[in-house]
Computed example of a mutant assay.
Amino acid sequence: MELNRAAHAFATLGHPGRLTVFRLLMRFAPKGVRPTEIAEALDLKQNTLSHHLADLTASGLVSVTRHGRSLYYAVDLDATEGLIGYLALDVGRGRPDLISPLFPEQKDPAMRDTDFDVLFICSGNSARSIFAEALLRDLGKGRFQAFSAGTRPGTELNPFALDVLRRNGHDVKGLRSKHISDFQKPDSIVMDFVFTVCDTAAAEECPPWPGQPITGHWGLPDPVKATGTDAEKALVFAQTYAALRRRIAAFVELPFESLSRLSLQARVDAIGADTEAKA
């Protein structure tokens, strides 16, 4: 990355408000986010957010696309990679004493092929993340240990979700609603993958996970918000289950033993993008 462009990008991120917006967009990457959703998640006024987004876009770190009447802002991953590379390799001269401590659990050139620990997060841990936990447990062929959690305390499993799981042959004994803090204790399992399966969970401010797990945002609409008759609500839950089943079925078939972290991250992103379009 050229010096002046890097200086512009660093100066842009030097403002706390712009850095906060950029950090939120990174949690959704590579997908874009509408300004109304950003403003709601960060409790920002629209005019303040507009200035931050304009500056981030001008720096080249963020791109904007239009879909219908909505604008979507997304991190430009190539520009961000260039900026991080400039800081690590040009400014830092690639010193191993600076770079190596950042990746103590890095698994390049290939991920191990057994015993992956995977956490699915949503807001309530009552439906979507519970679906994902049960699906990975049963489709994972013994290679995965699946967990789920919510960002809202005190929730309970949704009866429509439990009914969908039973009808699809999943054992629901042992499933329970859990808070994300249960997995953030000093002695907690170090996750290999962390997925958010709803937009509100991706917007939550969570500390970095130990071990640098591969992360993915596989957001789906909340079936708990479905309205209508019980039959109509049950249909929405079944559709949500089917969308997650497609994603997880594709995920468990990945050739983990031959993929680098970079390639695996790209596959995880692609699964969320491709199956969302079909959901």
Rank of each mutant, 00 (worst) to 15 (best):
D187K: 15
A74D: 03
K141L: 09
T65S: 15
Q212L: 08
R23C: 03
L175P: 02
Y73I: 06
P255R: 05
R166E: 07
A226E: 00
D182E: 07
R34G: 01
L244I: 06
K31R: 08
E81C: 12
L162T: 13
K225D: 10
L119K: 03
N158K: 05
R261N: 08
A202D: 14
A29M: 12
F237T: 13
G32C: 15
M26V: 05
T227E: 11
E156M: 05
A88D: 05
M191N: 11
R27I: 04
V194E: 06
G60T: 07
P208C: 08
E156I: 12
K178A: 10
F251L: 09
S126A: 13
R34T: 07
P221I: 02
P186Q: 11
N47L: 11
L136S: 04
R93E: 13
M26A: 05
P210D: 08
A201Q: 02
R128Q: 05
M111I: 12
L135N: 02
P207T: 08
S100W: 14
V236S: 03
D97R: 02
A7F: 09
T57F: 12
N168L: 05
R69C: 06
A79Y: 09
S70P: 00
R112F: 15
S59Y: 00
Q212R: 03
L24N: 01
A74K: 11
Y72L: 15
L139A: 05
G216A: 14
D138A: 06
T229I: 03
H52I: 01
G32N: 13
A249E: 14
V164S: 04
L61C: 03
R267M: 06
A79T: 14
W209T: 04
H15C: 04
F195R: 02
E276A: 03
R93G: 06
R247T: 10
K185I: 13
F256N: 10
L119Y: 07
G124D: 00
A11Y: 10
L162I: 15
D55E: 14
L24Y: 03
A250R: 07
M26R: 15
D171M: 05
E257F: 15
D108T: 06
S123T: 12
M111E: 01
K141I: 01
L44P: 05
R167Y: 06
V224P: 00
E105T: 13
I248W: 07
I99Q: 07
R18G: 04
F160Y: 15
A149I: 14
S181I: 06
D78I: 08
M111T: 02
G174C: 00
Y241Q: 02
L139T: 04
K225M: 14
